[in-house]
Design a protein around this nucleic acid. Structure first.
Lengths: 286, 286
DNA sequence: GCAAAAGTGTTACCGGTACACCCATGG
DNA sequence: CCATGGGTGTACCGGTAACACTTTTGC
């Protein structure tokens, strides 16, 4: 706060600033021509329509790294836990409540920031479920705009409303934590087509991605990308998108059910030109 | 530093202090009557002489938690990385260089400390190998004291020199980072017979223990408790001590060798009333 | 020779993978 | 009745656990 005036020689008398950065994953169907347009389609797993992983980034409006994109985040307030800070700054940037939040790692290198004050960053990663993305952005008290392209309840594989640039004044918080008008300064990016990133945020995103992949292999995490009820195919599609490889449907079914936590709701999802699929819920086994 | 004078009302104008705490594991043979003496012998795995896990703690000499024991640690200096701080404070407390250091988790709850200033702690965990424990304590420039009980080269299952209380002035650094005479204020404790702990350090130790156990199951970590050369039995004994369960020698041998990284030195370790065992080294596969 | 630990071999089992096969629905 | 995805059955394969067995030392 008042440390902006600090010269490099004063640096040793200042305690390090504590900030939080959040890598918030969400899933979108593969809409090419979203930003950066076309280019090679990943090259990842299969040619099918697996969704891709997206994260929100905030454009920096001041030096250093002016114009580059950075993770949502900011310094902790005196009465916040670290998780509180992560949630607050993520809400401010994406204007949505994440479905899961978990600490990732702390970065405390001496020369992380080009600024005078030393910066220690605790990184978090978060997940957005489809229901959180569907929900109207918070903050904007204006009721449902009901624009043409968003009439019926959004289905999982509908395109996501493009990182809403709304009329109502929103705010984002940049790395130094100074609130400022954002609006156009927040955008979602596919993790395999990221822009120039500020600080060591590329490294943090890599770290978060490998953690996400590791956890989907041994823990039940993928379901958090989905709404409260889902079919096993949807869950498998999410898993394939995260792991970047295709998974045998039959074996996935058995393993997912054997791992526990999945509850048959009794309901079915019809609509496709095929046998209707059972809908499942997830209950924490703890 | 100058934040000692901060009243609770000033708190919101202060940035949080950033400190590091270190859980440093070492192995000792099961010497009962070391501190707290006797009591029930664990009840863990088997009745054999598996070693036990010990950690160094520092007695607090000021409020809060005066008289309780705390993890080695202290605030980061302006020109230190977080790992630097962990190493420095651990050296100051245990006066030995650890063989492994890894970040554990960051604790940033609002009310962690009872003091005025908010405290964010980044926890690390470290491992001491037997060769690091054998080495003469650093800092003390006095050459080998060569007291009666320490003449021949120490073997792995010899009792460890009891948390040396030396003549030379040592220093430990308490949670607030103020250097002060320590000597008797550092002691090693068995993790299943810990004293009253300051702050949330009991929780941090639990966290570190489960991480240690998890890592020994899927990664090659146990060998770091040993010296540069070791037999597979010793490695197995370490693994059993960490996991708290006995392991089949035959299968352990095959799996350890299959995992890679172990190199046959060609040497043998004779001395027991049985067939001599091959000595192995470890090479990082990276 | 005997005890004790090093080291090898053998077998049963279990979880994961691959893939063939039926089921139910829309068109 | 055909295409499509939902859902089930099953054979195979590799890693692990269990344990019998041989080897080499000290006493």
């Amino acid at each position: 706060m008042q440390y902006e005036r600090a010269s490099a020689s004063e640096r040793r008398y200042l305690p390090p600033a504590v900030a939080v950065s959040v890598v918030a994953f969400a899933l979108r169907p593969p809409v090419d021509a979203e930003r950066g347009g076309d280019a090679e389609r990943g090259g990842d797993a299969d040619t099918s329509d697996t969704p891709t992983i997206w994260i929100p980034l905030v454009r920096r409006t001041r030096a250093p790294f002016l114009g580059d994109w950075a993770l949502p985040g900011g310094p902790t307030e005196w009465d916040e836990t670290l998780a509180d800070t992560a949630l607050r700054t993520l809400r401010a940037a994406a204007r949505r409540e994440p479905g899961h939040l978990e600490q990732l790692y702390s970065f405390g290198g001496v020369e992380r920031s080009a600024e005078a004050q030393r910066l220690v960053t605790i990184a978090y990663w978060a997940l957005y479920g489809e229901h959180q993305l569907d929900a109207e952005p918070e903050t904007s008290a204006t009721p449902a705009p009901a624009t043409a392209q968003q009439q019926r309840p959004r289905r999982w594989d509908d395109p996501l409303p493009p990182a809403p640039a709304l009329a109502a004044p929103q705010h984002a918080i940049d790395e130094r934590g100074l609130a400022q008008p954002a609006g156009e300064n927040v955008a979602w990016f596919s993790v395999d087509r990221l822009p120039a990133l500020a600080f060591d945020h590329a490294e943090i995103i890599d770290h978060a991605l490998s953690r996400l992949r590791a956890k989907t292999e041994y823990a039940a995490v993928a379901y958090r990308f989905l709404g409260p009820e889902f079919t096993l195919s949807r869950l498998r599609a999410v898993t394939e998108a995260v792991l970047g490889e295709s998974v045998d449907p039959a074996n996935f079914r058995r393993q997912a059910l054997a791992r526990g936590g999945l509850v048959d709701t009794g309901k079915l999802e019809s609509g496709g030109a095929h046998r209707p699929a059972k809908l499942y819920r997830f209950t924490e086994p703890s």
